[in-house]
Design a protein around this nucleic acid. Structure first.
Length: 423
RNA sequence: GGUGAGAUGCCUGAGUGGCCGAAAGGAACAGUUUGCUAAACUGUCGUACGGGUAACUGUACCGCGGGUUCGAAUCCCGCUCUCACCGCCA
């Protein structure tokens, strides 16, 4: 979430930036500042009285020790009455804190100044496009037919053992999955990311740290008996590795990558969006996460964007990169690039990656800080991106590379899966 | 699942009612010095929220939440977590 300091010190700037999300935070921000003023006032009162009470207690102790029990006992009632006033002031302070917090969590991250204006997906800015859209043979079909034709993925079987959106990958389909995961991880390692293998369930504190809780509660699978959430992305465990941590500036940037299955309830999705591999309850993804110095985070975001673009090029897929407009950005992001590959058979763009800079929005929640070279404690910026999510990559490989005689595997994956054609 | 022990600062670890925001050692950082991939010495060395132009200063925090007391790291209650042993098991 945004910090009080940001709001107090750069009020107008924050308001202007938030307006890009097509809502006016002016009122909320006034309320936050009002509540924070109340909090400060209550704290001053409480602290003053506490100081007095502490002083009295000390006096009483000294008196007892020097044998002046009678004098000490005289002072006691004074502290008792003080205690009541203190309790009152602290109650006010607590209430004001609760108010501030309740308001603060309703505010999304403030978009970066370069974020384009816009209401929705139609207003996103295409900043890059690469690759030829292939011409398919006349019997070309969408991936959900190809997966059946070549016996790669069994959606029905998944329904039987779990439910819709939990596919079973079979034979070359399963091998292709494994090849992609290994390829993505190897690429990330080469780019300097440390490979990690985190738990795929997280506790409530972690869900809060990266911003999934409280507002996206219904989107995560929850194991009630143990109060654990199935992760919707590796971003959650990997970023939470650094919850309550104070780093040294010299440690920055921190670069981690992880493959994990991802679980999403996708409540409310329907229609062509959920057909085949387009939207699943469980899918595989390799995530890259960085923690970076605030001065370098946007430079890093560009590098991460270019990194993902490089992977897509190697996979020989036609893709474009969008800079999301204010109206289409995620709640916690300050700037997001989406990568979309073109699915020739479905004649639509499919989102396969999202690369974002969160500035201090996550750090603040995580209590993630670093000591800068002057010894000052500051918050670093967090960034992450998919590199990449598998299902739609698989869908577009199948669809774009289909021929009359089978599906051609991208060159770069051949060493990983051990075959050149799916037939 | 059963039984027992424990939770203190970056780490180890002392502290059982006021002199404790907390000993000591280690690590880390800065400096001094030494002709050798280091040692010795000195200093610094928790976080958060306030007040103050500033120097400085107040408050809270010894797993979490309550309670007792003029006063709690220290006593009491509840919770969570960790460890050990047994049982079960990949």
């Amino acid at each position: 979430m945004l910090t009080l300091q940001q709001i107090r010190e750069n009020r107008e700037d924050i308001i202007a930036r938030l307006k890009k999300r097509n809502f006016d935070p002016t009122e909320t921000i006034s309320q936050i500042i009002e509540a924070d003023n109340r909090r400060r006032q209550a704290q001053v009162e409480a602290d003053t009285m506490l100081a007095e009470a502490n002083g009295l207690s000390k006096q009483i102790g000294d008196l007892f020790k020097s044998g002046n029990a009678a004098q000490a006992n005289e002072l006691k009632p004074k502290t008792v009455s003080l205690k009541e006033s203190i309790a009152q002031a602290e109650e006010l302070k607590k209430q004001a804190e609760t108010d501030v917090y309740a308001l603060l969590v309703t505010l999304p991250n403030a978009p970066h100044s370069s974020v384009p204006e816009g209401k929705g997906a139609g207003d996103n800015l295409t900043v890059y496009q690469h690759g030829e859209i292939p011409t398919l043979h006349e019997n070309a079909v969408p991936h959900w037919e190809l997966t059946t034709k070549y016996d790669l993925i069994d959606f029905e079987l998944g329904v039987k053992i779990a439910g819709a959106g939990f596919p079973v990958y079979k034979g070359k389909g399963a091998k292709l999955q494994r090849a992609l995961i290994n390829y993505f991880l190897d690429k990330a390692s080469t780019a300097g990311y440390r490979e990690m293998q985190p738990p795929i369930v997280v506790n409530e504190d972690s869900g809060f740290g990266t911003g999934q809780l409280p507002d996206k509660e219904g989107q995560m699978y929850f194991v009630g008996e143990d109060k654990l959430y199935l992760i919707p992305t590796a971003e959650v465990p990997i970023t939470n590795l650094y919850r309550d941590v104070i780093l040294n500036e010299k440690e920055l940037p921190i670069k981690n990558t992880a493959y994990t299955p991802c679980f999403r309830r996708e409540a409310g999705s329907y229609g062509k969006d959920v057909r085949g591999l387009n939207r699943l309850h469980q899918f595989d993804k390799v995530e890259i996460v960085q923690i970076q110095h605030p001065d370098k985070s946007y430079e890093t975001l560009e590098q991460m964007k270019d990194y993902v673009a490089g992977v897509l090029k190697e996979l020989e897929l036609p893709f474009r990169i969008l800079k999301l407009c204010g109206g289409d950005m995620g709640f916690t992001s300050a700037l997001t690039y989406d990568m979309e590959v073109y699915s020739t058979a479905q004649k639509r763009w499919l989102e396969v990656s999202s690369v974002s800079c969160f500035e201090t929005y996550q750090s603040n929640r995580l209590k993630l800080r670093f000591k800068d070279n002057e010894g000052k404690t500051r918050m670093p910026h967090t960034l992450n991106g998919s590199a990449l999510a598998l299902p739609r990559i698989v869908a577009s490989i199948l669809e774009n590379n289909q021929t009359e005689n089978g599906i051609r595997v991208p060159m770069v994956l051949v060493p990983y899966c051990g075959f050149e054609v799916i037939d």
